[in-house]
């Protein structure tokens, strides 16, 4: 996100290079100081704060209704995790939901990144009539409250008879104004104009230019945008809720079906909540380093 703003960096984005550089500089310059115990305490505190609600979701999911109503609240896992997860899985049509969500988020991510890179490149580097107005339009779009478009969108989807079909969810998410703006801001600095001119002189037409010059230059930002989009699409619930039903749900839609039974079971609801979050958490745990690095790299460059 910070792509838009960060001042032109005076040095390469470091990632994890702190250690090496430390040998070069002595003295008390900011980042090269070793952290004291106080730092660890504060960071530890915030880490616990970040993780606790999720851990407690898992604890609640491993208990039952009655235990959740007692004081003090449970602080450790109980024995019902398996059965609650199973109940949530069957109740909420979770298998289909996961497959659907991977498909939706995947498609949305690929197309958003592609469209945003193309349009972002055009806005960043090409001169054409109306570009300013169109760019303003894009920026304005970011400020439109999403609740606003629901009625007309639904009418359109209804007209096309797309209700309860995945494309009803995929297509509206493909046009990401933020994505276009994001890529534009990145490419303005990351893609030297001389490079484009040189390619042109070599006789490259636009498609080749995009393939051989723009995409390679944009790759880090594309990766970041891709991750942001994927997480966003995975967690989107406002519009899918309207367009889909429990018969053909995404994860977020499926979760809302958990209250459906005669008497809602809080621990099953928490189990469902956990199921819906778990895939992303696993991805974060496994690729955390890359994701963090990506977000930071995308943020610094530009």
């Amino acid at each position: 996100m910070a792509v838009l703003t960060s001042a032109t960096p005076k040095e390469e984005a470091p990632g994890e290079g702190d250690g090496k550089r430390r040998t070069r500089t002595r003295g008390k310059a900011g980042r090269h100081l070793y952290a004291g115990w106080f730092t660890y305490v504060v960071l530890g505190f915030f880490t616990v704060g970040s993780l606790f609600p999720l851990v407690w979701t898992a604890i609640a999911a491993s208990r039952d209704n009655a235990r959740l109503a007692e004081t003090p609240p449970p602080f450790w896992f109980g024995g019902n995790l398996g059965s609650n997860l199973q109940a949530a899985w069957t109740d909420a049509n979770m298998g289909k939901a996961l497959i659907n969500t991977v498909f939706v988020a995947g498609t949305v991510t690929v197309s958003t990144v592609l469209f945003a890179t193309l349009a972002g490149f055009a806005f960043a580097k090409l001169r054409f009539r109306g570009s300013n107005i169109l760019l303003l339009l894009v920026i304005g779009t970011m400020m439109v409250p999403p609740q606003l478009s629901v009625v007309p969108l639904f009418m359109a989807v209804a007209e096309l008879e797309w209700t309860n079909q995945l494309q009803a969810v995929i297509l509206p998410m493909m046009a990401s104004a933020f994505g276009v703006f994001f890529m534009r801001q990145y490419l303005i600095n990351a893609l030297p104009t001389e490079l484009i001119e040189a390619a042109r002189v070599d006789g490259a037409h636009s498609l080749r230019l995009v393939w051989h010059v723009v995409f390679p230059a944009a790759r880090p930002a594309m990766a970041v945008l891709g991750m942001l989009t994927f997480v966003l699409a995975w967690n989107e619930f406002f519009w899918p809720m309207i367009a889909l039903t429990q018969d053909n749900p995404t994860v977020q839609v499926a979760l809302t079906g958990l209250g459906r039974g005669y008497i809602p079971d809080q621990s099953v609801i928490m189990a469902g909540s956990l199921l819906g979050t778990l895939p992303l958490l696993i991805v974060f745990a496994v690729f955390g380093k890359q994701i963090v690095g990506g977000i930071m790299q995308g943020a610094v460059k530009g």
Binding site: L43, P53, L54, W234, N235, L255, T256, G276, T277, A285
Partner: peptide
């Protein structure tokens, strides 16, 4: 986090996990 620090990547990833949690899941808990 900008200090030289043991386990800095762990702290970074841990602090980013709430971002992966959906509004619904977060608000429920």
């Amino acid at each position: 986090l900008n200090y030289k620090l043991r386990g800095s990547m762990f702290f970074r990833v841990a602090m980013l996990t709430p971002y992966a949690t959906s509004v619904a899941a977060a608000t429920l808990v």
